[in-house]
């Protein structure tokens, strides 16, 4: 690996460490430009001049943005949408099969697991970025509990805790799903992306349309899945 590649790898780790500290994009650009300027002047590698990137990032007194919490629209919106989807999907199946929407206690408790994992994301995100297996475990746990909930359905002999008219459940959960997704889409579009700004480069222009679309895509996945449920039941029913 050349020293330029070594420096680029160091700077990538440094940017990640600053992002995980919730440092603003313009302050990150400033700190990176200082590193590049200093190693150009001194002839040292970034590691020689600044030590370990995570430790150095922790020592800088830089401007930060408010940390994302579970109540942020980008977290709470998807969590509510997910919970609504868990009610919507079986309700649609019941509507098409002409049965009542029934849930058992273990089934409802298992639906809470993926929602809690989404709501808790701000708490374990920074650790997960450094230990990707943690995300893999969280994802596996979410999938297992969501799919495993079907094993505890009342039609498998578990006592019915809640029984509703599936039309009402589908209508209410569908409305919540659409409302929560729209809320998070509006929030994602309203917030200007916090891009890294090079103080020696031109001022950043408005974010490109492709970037804005990319911020919206995660929030339309659940409404799209809900639509797929309806189409699937109608076609394959």
């Amino acid at each position: 690996m050349t020293s330029a590649q070594t420096n680029d790898a160091w700077i990538d780790d440094f940017i990640l460490a600053l992002r995980l500290r919730d440092v603003r994009g313009d302050a990150i650009g400033d700190a990176v430009a200082v590193v590049r300027g200093h190693i150009a002047d001194s002839g040292e590698t970034a590691a020689e001049a600044f030590g370990e990137p995570r430790a150095y990032a922790g020592q800088l007194d830089v401007t930060t943005v408010p940390a994302i919490t579970a109540l942020d629209p980008v977290v709470l919106g998807p969590a509510v949408s997910l919970l609504a989807f868990f009610a919507f999907a079986p309700a649609v199946a019941s509507v098409f099969s002409g049965t009542r929407g029934e849930f058992s206690l273990p089934q409802l408790l298992l639906f809470v697991v993926p929602v809690a994992l989404v709501l808790g994301l701000p708490a374990y995100f920074s650790v997960g970025v450094r230990h990707l297996w943690l995300f893999a475990i969280a994802f596996g746990l979410a999938v297992l509990s969501a799919t495993g909930a079907a094993l505890f359905a009342p039609d498998r002999g578990y006592p019915v805790l809640a029984s509703w008219d599936p039309w009402w459940v589908a209508a209410i959960s569908g409305a919540i799903l659409l409302g929560a997704s729209s809320w998070s889409i509006v929030a994602a579009l309203r917030d200007e992306p916090d891009v890294i700004v090079d103080p020696n480069g031109p001022a950043p222009g408005p974010s490109p349309r492709s970037h804005r679309l990319a911020t919206v895509v995660p929030h339309v996945l659940l409404p799209a899945a809900a639509l797929a449920c309806i189409v699937g039941e109608a076609v394959l029913g």
């Binding site: 200082v34 200093h38 600044f50 020592q59 800088l60 007194d61």
Partner: peptide
Amino acid sequence: VKGGTLYPLLTRYES
């Protein structure tokens, strides 16, 4: 004096 020592000091003085 290493950059890793100098710049954190300067950012504190800037703040």
